[in-house]
């Protein structure tokens, strides 16, 4: 903006040590995350490529398949389990968040908020133990009932598992695990709804539900999508809970109540890595690369959705 004919006096702020330290610390932190991400990417690609190129039969893990037919069912299982979890967790988290932000008495809302945050602190191994030892036996009779009475729904059509350790059980555990983060974000977003919008809606004679539908939900739409995507990210990468709960095979199957379930990439790595060696390690790292790419694509997609929706959210 400075004209060439009239050189503007350069105004430089006095550099205090505090400013310097803080700005360089911030730059360092910022670049550290990029370096870490780059290091992980390079590791995955360098170690994964021999796995992708591995011939069928080169390692015991692949058996007589090539890499893509090995990772295909795993990628499917990862997305399928995460999608099931999201379908269960999204309405629930929106409901809890709305209850906390707009329905519950202040004190109860606070307590409930703490409890939800506490759920987020439970380690996934504990969820895994609970899912395998408590939840699976509990849902087993329900699964048997579902296959008998709701078998006309394709995903319920088949022989029910005798142990209850199915992908639906794993998805329920995943849903419980992603609930806290989703609820926390949804709650924050709903609380940000401009007071004037809410009051305007109420002044026009709407009931509380109508106010929420017309003012709160449209405003929070982008936030709800972000919450869902964060939850999805965690569900995609969750390892221990799935490994401990699921009864896995390398198949593509939409039936959610049986013994034969598709495995997830992360759980498969956890299960196979301890005994893997040689090219098998590369194959597993290559599946990790696929998971990395899948997560990346999902996040990019989410960001795209959020950006596209921003102008209609009513926030501006």
């Amino acid at each position: 903006m400075t004209g060439a004919a009239l050189p503007a006096p350069r105004i430089t702020a006095k550099q205090r040590p505090g400013d310097r330290i803080f700005s360089s610390a911030a730059v360092l932190a910022g670049s550290l995350i990029l370096v870490t991400l780059a290091a992980v990417t390079i590791f995955l690609i360098a170690q994964g490529i021999p796995g992708i190129l591995a011939e069928p039969g080169e390692t015991t893990i692949l058996r007589d398949r090539d890499f893509w037919s090995y990772v295909g069912p795993l990628a499917f299982g990862t997305l399928w389990a995460a999608a099931l979890a999201l379908v269960m967790a999204t309405p629930l988290s929106v409901g809890i968040a709305l209850f906390i932000s707009h329905f519950a008495p202040r004190r109860l809302a606070q307590v409930l908020g703490y409890v939800i945050d506490l759920l987020a602190a439970v380690p996934s191994v504990v969820f895994g133990l609970w899912g395998g030892l408590v939840l699976a036996p509990l849902v087993r009779p329900m699964y048997a009932w579902l296959t008998e009475n709701a078998g006309w729904i394709p995903i319920f059509n088949g022989q029910a598992s005798a142990t209850g350790r199915t992908i639906l059980t794993a998805a329920i555990v995943l849903a419980v695990m992603i609930l806290p983060i989703m609820t926390a974000i949804n709650r924050e977003v709903f609380l940000q709804t401009p007071r004037l919008h809410e009051e305007a809606a109420l002044a026009l004679g709407s009931t509380r539900w109508e106010m929420i539908r017309m003012a709160v939900l449209p405003f929070g739409r982008a936030g709800m999508v972000s919450a869902a995507m964060l939850g999805l990210g965690r569900a995609l990468g969750e390892t221990m809970a799935v490994a401990m709960v699921l009864s896995p095979s390398t198949v593509v199957s939409f039936f959610v109540l049986g013994s034969t379930n598709p495995n997830t990439i992360a759980a498969n790595i956890a299960l196979s890595f301890p005994e893997a060696y040689g090219a098998g390690v590369n194959v597993l790292i290559a599946t990790g690369l696929v998971l990395f790419v899948v997560t990346f694509v999902v996040n990019a997609l989410a960001r795209y959705v959020v950006n596209r929706r921003r102008e209609f959210s009513g926030a501006n």
Binding site: A162, G164, T260, L271
Partner: peptide, 22 residues
């Protein structure tokens, strides 16, 4: 590539214990 599976000896024993006819 089908059937019930469980992780580790402990997981397998738990699965057999928790099921019926396993």
């Amino acid at each position: 590539e089908s059937g019930e599976a469980a992780q580790g000896t402990t997981g397998l024993v738990d699965a057999v214990n928790g099921g019926n006819g396993t």
